[in-house]
């Protein structure tokens, strides 16, 4: 495994928790994001994720670097799965270790917020009667927009 990766096989979250664990760490937060069946009253049959893989891995690594700069002593690993995912499958895993728990909690939430802003991954929801690429989940920096 790599510390920051896009994968097409099912994710085993424990591998990422193990990766960030060190003797200095007193806390590990492990977040797993899952495929949800119901969104705003509409039933999803499954999701299809796509990524611009080299750039997505680079941006995940950037998020890890941002975290290690903002919260001293943290270590981060992030994986996102692409392809077709069924309800309850793990789409994303974020593992953060830190000397004390507060940093591990805060940094983990920061990571998922940043993923939704800068990492080129796209989700298509497939319903019983149609499908749609999902976007606009977070506001983008204005100067980059065309």
């Amino acid at each position: 495994m790599k510390a920051f990766e896009i994968v097409s096989e099912p994710i085993n979250p424990q591998r990422y928790a193990d990766y960030v664990l060190r003797p200095e760490a007193g806390a590990v937060t492990l977040f797993t994001g899952h495929v949800r069946e119901w969104t705003k009253g509409i039933r999803t049959l499954y999701l299809a994720y796509e990524a611009y893989i080299p750039m997505a891995e680079k941006k995940l690594a950037q998020i890890g670097q941002e975290i290690e700069e903002k919260w001293e002593g943290t270590r981060v690993a992030i994986a996102h799965r692409i392809g077709e995912l069924a309800i309850s499958d793990i789409a994303v895993v974020i593992a953060v270790s830190s000397p004390h728990r507060k940093s591990a909690y805060e940094a983990n939430e920061y990571a998922i917020e940043r993923i939704k802003e800068i990492v080129p991954i796209w989700k298509k929801e497939i319903w019983e009667d149609g499908e749609e690429w999902i976007g606009h989940q977070k506001k983008k920096p204005k100067e980059e927009l065309l």
């Binding site: 990524a51 611009y52 996102h80 998922i112 939704k116 796209w122 690429w133 989940q137």
Partner: peptide
């Protein structure tokens, strides 16, 4: 927008991202 493209560059059109 003002960045200049050089020979051999790879440009990608990125719609709103929706990972997570």
């Amino acid at each position: 927008p003002a960045d200049v493209l050089n020979d051999g560059d790879v440009a990608a059109f990125i719609p709103p991202v929706s990972g997570g």
